[in-house]
Design a protein around this nucleic acid. Structure first.
Length: 89
DNA sequence: CGTATGACGTGCA
DNA sequence: GTGCACGCCATAC
């Protein structure tokens, strides 16, 4: 645990948090930022995901505070559709 | 080290 | 209700 010699950067934290999001649940960038400890760094959160979106990370479960899907793969793909497919209204 | 960028958020007109 | 501009944080170059 605890990252000893491993440098945990904001990106690592964000990825971990996003990966912890259960199916049928979505979080806003601000929420994720708050979970990482930087409630005002929602900007960095989007930046991290934007540059380091992994296939194991449901970044599509991360939406905007407006309830909009925001973006996924540098685009909009069918984020809203896939979310609905998972059980997110 | 400084600048630029980015999948955002909020406020105001 | 919609559109524009500014602000914030971290990473990359």
């Amino acid at each position: 645990m605890s990252q000893k010699s491993n440098k945990v950067t904001f990106a690592d934290n964000v990825r971990e948090v996003v990966r912890r999001i259960p199916k049928g649940h979505v979080m806003t960038y601000k929420e994720v930022a708050t979970m990482t400890g930087r409630p005002n760094a929602y900007r960095a959160v989007g930046n991290i995901l934007a540059k380091n979106y992994d296939p194991n990370i449901p970044c599509h479960r991360v939406i905007k505070s407006d309830g909009k899907t925001g973006g996924y793969n540098r685009g909009r793909n069918n984020k809203a559709k896939m979310l609905k497919n998972e059980g997110v209204l």
